[in-house]
Each structure stands twice: as C-alpha cells, then as structure tokens.
Design a protein around this nucleic acid. Structure first.
Length: 492
RNA sequence: GCCCCUAUCGUCUAGAGGCCUAGGACGCCGGGUUCUCAUCCCGGUAACAGGAGUUCGAAUCUCCUUGGGGGUACCA
C-alpha cells in the first residue's frame, strides 16, 4: 500500500483526494470503513436481499468438484428457506463459520456495458449468490468496491480485464442497494516477455533458476545475504516458499544476477526515469493514433481518450522501454535530469554521491544517449574511485595495454598532458590529437591506452572529458600507476 | 469442465468496406559518422492466424476452427 503511494508520487501522479491527502469522502482506508460495510450488509439481510450462510470451505469445495465432474458451471444453491437469527445463533454455538451471501436476482441475465468492449452479456445462471461479508466480519472486495464507488461518487471504474466477469455481481449489488452505476472500462492485461502475465512472482522465480544453474554458489553465504535461514533457502529452492522482496533482492545482488523489473521501484533502481515510465506505461494498451510515440506527461494527458484503449493483451517489451528512456533522458531539462540522477545515486548507494552538482551535471551532459542512469553511473564511476584502487578489466588490459602495446605510449602521453598550462577538455583534445598525428596513428591508439589507464575499462565518456573530469593530477597519478603495473612486462 | 475477452510485421501498434502495393515505432540486418560505449545519419527485412460466408469490393461485417489471455474463492 505504502509502496504503491510512493510509486505514484515518483511517477509524478498525484490525487485530489484519498490516502495521505484526505478529502470530503473519507475515510479512504477500508479498514476504517468496516462499520459502513456492515450496516449496508445488515440492511440487505433485513430486506431479504442477502442471507446468512454457514458452509465450510471444505463443503463448498465438494460442491464445486461435483459440478465440474458433471461438466457444469458452479453456482451456489440458495436454500428454500432463508436462515433466521436462531439459525445464526445455533451455527455460532456449533462453531460453524457465519458469512453473509448476496441473493442474486436477475432472471434475465446481465449486460455489462463496457467502454472498451461494448455490451457483454452473461446468462442468469452465470452469477450465483456470492459472499459479501466473510466469516471474519470483513467485506469481500466485491462488496467493498460497490459501497465505496457509491459513497465516494466514483464515475468511472477503469480496471484490469480480470474484473470483467465480476462486474455483473457489482451491478446486481448496485441495483439491490439503489445505487447509481459508474461507467466501466476493462483494460487489457500486460504480459511479460518471459511468458505469462507480468507478475511479482517473476523475480523470485528468476532468482531460483539462477541459483539452480549456478551449482557452485555458496548457499550459506546466499542465505546470510538474504537474511534467511538455510532451511528457508532450501524450502525456496524446492518451490515451497517465497522469501520477501528485500531478501530476494539481496540474494540476487550476492549472486550477481539481474532480476526482471516488475514493480515501479525496480525500474527506478535500474535507472529509468519517471517520464519514461509514464509514457511507456501509458502506451501499453493505449494508442492515440498519431505517429508520435515519445510524449511528455502533459501531452499524454491531453491526447488520452478512454475509447482508444486497445482490446488485446500487450507484451511488455523491455527493449522498447529502454529506447524510450534514451529519448526522455535527452528531453529532460538539465535540472530535472540532475535531480533524477541524484535520487538514483542515493537509492543505489553509488560512490558518485560524493560528487558535486557541477560534476554530476557534466557527467550527464557527456553521456546523453545512454539507455539508463545506471549506464551513466557505471561509465562515470571511475571519477570517484581511489586512484590506487582502480578495478582493471583483465581483457581490456590484455588487449589495449599489452597486446597492442598501449602501455608503451603512456609515458609520452603523460609528459605532454603534464606540460599543459590550462587544463580544459579542448586543450586535452589538442594534445592528444597532436600526439596521434605526430606518431602517424589513429586517435584510438592514444586514447584507448589512456582510457584503460585511468578508468580500468574500455568504456568511458569521451576521453577528453574523462581526463578533465578526473583532473590532471589524478590522471597523471593513474597513468604512472598503470605504467608501473603493466608497462615493464611489455617492454621486458 | 464451464464462462468471458481477444487475434495486423519478432514486439507495441495505425487501420472503423474502396485512400492498403497495409503506415509508424522498437528490435533485427547492412552501410556511414566516431577516441571507447552509446548517440546520430542512411538503407533493408518483416504482418492482416486458417476456413466459410455477406458485398461490385473486406485487414475492416457475420459464422466456424485454431491460437493467446482471463475468470471460475469467505484474494483482490
């Protein structure tokens, strides 16, 4: 619940009334509305439109199985004589569950007039008497929404297709209570590229597969990372239990596997910006008809039309999502992007948090075209690393510094850079290009060894900016360290 | 089993009987730009699920089949 609220806020979606902001139609939490539901339920019972029932879950299961065996749909059979107060008292004394069931009265069936799908018809036998108050005293979803929609003056109910079949129940209830009927729109479901529907279960399942594949993984360390016991981990691996979200995340990190993003926060942590998510999610199951797809929130709002929601399920395409992110990162104002980046760095605990705004802005500016903020962070992390603790990518060192003899050119590069009076990206560019020309080689022959020396990898922002961001002192220090470490072996 | 929804390139989709030789975007493939990774610029690949109707004419309407999804709860 709290997470949903946080997610909405991150997306920049706010609400006029509801949890946290209050409003004229509260309270907004179902747990605070129990008395309301109960009084309406009692009214229905008094009017003979609902009745108490005492079946156990087991008894109901038997009935359902019987119906299926007979190749029939199941509908609860209403007793010929509705139970009275004495029956309730007796059931309570016997320790039987006491629930309240709504007596559906619709001999001619139901028509749901859906904004997306048109009129959908259901036969009278399709909707049996259903529970409105559970034996624990809480309302079922069906009952609570109907009451809430009426009391909160809801005009449009837009929800997942999985609720289409529930709508006759809701309408029957509205009729019995004398409520008005909101307009309904049942949206298509978003399915995952890994198969079924996009579900929270995908993350733990992916993790389990990763653990199974990686036989060498240290199970004890894994359990410790997730803060769960070895038995719990075993249970999880056997498919008997699911650890909670933080545990799953922690174990994935320990194992070094990437889990598919499902929840909105997952996308935040992966470096997507809210503008992207609003645009992309808005286009899943909706299309304004034009040829433009990259839209700002205000544009999306103005172009939205409930009648243009699509009917068929849509698949969540992460490739397209990341391309949308590239576009939105490019469209952001520098200030907005900086704010997003800082939130991202804080969330992921990046060492780049130490950098000041000017430096971070520069990083963002240099990395326009990146797919995600995570990519930018990775590319620029070298700035915050300790000069003598750079992690060298072995294959980069092997190829650039050793095999191509790059280490041998570093001392000269260092000398020329050291001679610079005024250090700017432009000046650095001049030095390096001049050097390449002098040596009759491509710029790459000079830039790549330098890049590996100061970042440890072959991936970084443009080399001139990279050197400038790092500062000349640290650049020279790193070159010296790299020469000492990788240079002599090449020469001797 | 029963019930409901749904069906255009690999994916998201445009398309409401002739503007369709089916458009766009992402992806993919090829080429160019480039100091790396990206970006960027050119070009290309690729779809109306199948079968019957209706109509002068069908991606568009009807029916059937098949595929996909959902529901079938004292979960939401």
């Amino acid at each position: 619940m709290q997470q949903v609220l946080n997610d909405l806020r991150w997306l920049g979606i706010d609400w006029d009334e509801g949890p946290e902001v209050g409003g004229p139609n509260g309270p907004y939490l179902q747990s605070q509305r129990l008395d309301i539901y109960r009084s309406y339920a009692e009214r229905l019972v008094r009017e003979g439109k609902a009745y108490y029932c005492f079946d156990t879950v087991e008894e109901l299961t038997v009935l359902r199985d019987k119906a299926e065996a007979a190749k029939q749909g199941f509908a609860y059979t209403r007793p010929a004589v509705l139970p009275d107060e004495k029956d309730v008292a007796r059931a309570r004394a016997e320790g039987r569950p006491v629930a309240i069931r709504f007596a559906v009265n619709a001999p001619q069936g139901f028509v749901v007039d859906d904004l997306i799908r048109g009129k959908v018809r259901f036969g009278p036998a399709e909707v049996g008497d259903f529970i409105i108050i559970k034996s624990d005293g809480f309302p079922t979803y069906h009952f609570a929404v109907v009451i809430d929609d009426e009391l909160m003056k809801v005009t449009h109910v837009i929800r997942g297709q999985e609720h289409l079949m529930n709508t006759p129940c809701h309408q029957a209830l509205q009729d019995a209570l004398g409520f008005r009927r909101p307009a309904y729109a049942h949206m298509s479901v978003t399915v995952s590229d890994s198969g079924g529907k996009l579900s929270k279960r995908e993350r733990p399942v992916t993790l389990r597969k990763a653990i199974e594949k990686n036989a060498a993984a240290d199970r004890a360390a894994l359990a410790a990372a997730g803060g769960i016991s070895a038995e719990n981990l075993d249970g999880f691996l056997r498919g008997e239990s699911m650890p909670d979200m933080p545990a799953v995340d922690a174990m994935a990190r320990q194992l070094g596997v990437e889990l598919p993003e499902i929840n909105i926060v997952d996308f935040f942590r992966s470096g997507y910006i809210p503008e992207t998510m609003v645009n992309f999610l808005g286009f899943l199951g909706f299309n304004p008809g034009g040829e433009r797809e990259i839209l700002r929130r205000e544009e999306l709002v103005s172009v939205f039309d409930i009648h243009r929601l699509t009917k068929a399920n849509s698949l969540f395409d992460r490739k397209k999502l990341s391309s949308f992110n590239t576009e939105h990162i490019k469209m952001c104002t520098p200030e907005t992007l900086l704010a997003h980046f800082k939130m991202f760095l804080a969330q992921t605990g990046s060492p780049l948090q130490k950098a000041d705004d000017a430096m971070l802005s520069r990083m963002l500016h240099c990395c326009l075209g990146a797919r995600t903020l995570a990519e930018i962070e990775r590319k620029c992390r070298f700035v915050s690393a300790d000069d003598d603790a750079i992690e060298f990518d072995p294959s980069a060192v092997e190829k650039v510094l050793r095999k191509d003899g790059g280490a041998a050119t570093l001392p000269l590069v260092a000398r020329r850079l050291g001679e610079l009076k005024e250090v700017t990206a432009e000046a650095i560019e001049q030095v390096l290009r001049g050097l390449a020309e002098e040596k009759q080689v491509g710029l790459g022959k000079v830039a790549q060894p330098l890049r590996v020396a100061i970042t440890g990898t072959t991936i970084s922002p443009p080399i001139f900016d990279a050197v400038d961001m790092l500062g000349m002192d640290r650049t020279l220090k790193r070159i010296a360290l790299a020469v000492r470490r990788f240079g002599t072996e090449t020469n001797g």
